[in-house]
C-alpha cells in the first residue's frame, strides 16, 4: 500500500504529458491534497481545498435538482481552464489547461486518469 502514492504520481505524470495541461492534482473528496504536479507547490494545498469544494458544491446543486451527478466541472477564464472530475468515492482529479488547446483529448485522458485513480484508491 505504501507504493500507492507512487502509482498515483505516475497517473498524474501521464496526465501532465497531455498537450495543454499545465498542472494537475489528485485530491481527496474532502479537500486534502494527495499529490500534485504544479509549479508553485506552495499553493497546492489551497488549490486542492478549493477544487474539492467546487466539485462538491456542483454535485450538491445538480443532485438536489434531480439532474444526477455531474461528469465534471469546467471553469473557463481568459487565461486558462480548470477542470475537476470525480475519481471514485474518495478522490477527484483537477487539471489546469492553457487557453488555446482544444479540450477533446484532455477530457478523454482526464476520464481515463480518473478511472485509474479510482481503482488505485479502492
Amino acid at each position: 500500500m505504501a507504493d500507492t502514492i507512487e502509482l498515483i504520481e505516475k497517473v498524474l505524470a501521464d496526465m501532465k504529458k497531455v498537450r495543454g495541461v499545465e498542472a494537475c492534482a489528485a485530491v481527496s473528496r474532502d479537500g486534502l491534497l494527495i499529490s500534485a504536479i504544479m509549479q508553485n507547490k506552495r499553493f497546492a494545498e489551497s488549490f486542492a481545498a478549493m477544487s474539492a469544494t467546487m466539485l462538491g458544491a456542483a454535485e450538491t446543486a445538480t443532485t438536489e435538482l434531480n439532474k444526477g451527478v455531474p461528469d465534471r466541472v469546467i471553469v473557463e477564464s481568459k487565461r486558462g481552464r480548470l477542470i475537476t472530475a470525480g475519481a471514485g468515492p474518495k478522490a477527484l482529479i483537477v487539471v489546469l489547461v492553457d487557453s488555446n488547446t482544444g479540450l477533446g483529448l484532455v477530457l478523454l485522458e482526464l476520464e481515463k486518469s480518473a478511472e485509474k485513480l479510482k481503482e488505485l484508491l479502492l
Binding site: 473528496r29 474532502d30 479537500g31 469544494t53 458544491a57 450538491t60
Partner: peptide, 9 residues
C-alpha cells in the same frame, strides 16, 4: 452540505 463535505477527516 459544504460544511459536511469539508469537515471529513
Amino acid at each position: 452540505p459544504i460544511i459536511k463535505l469539508i469537515s471529513g477527516e
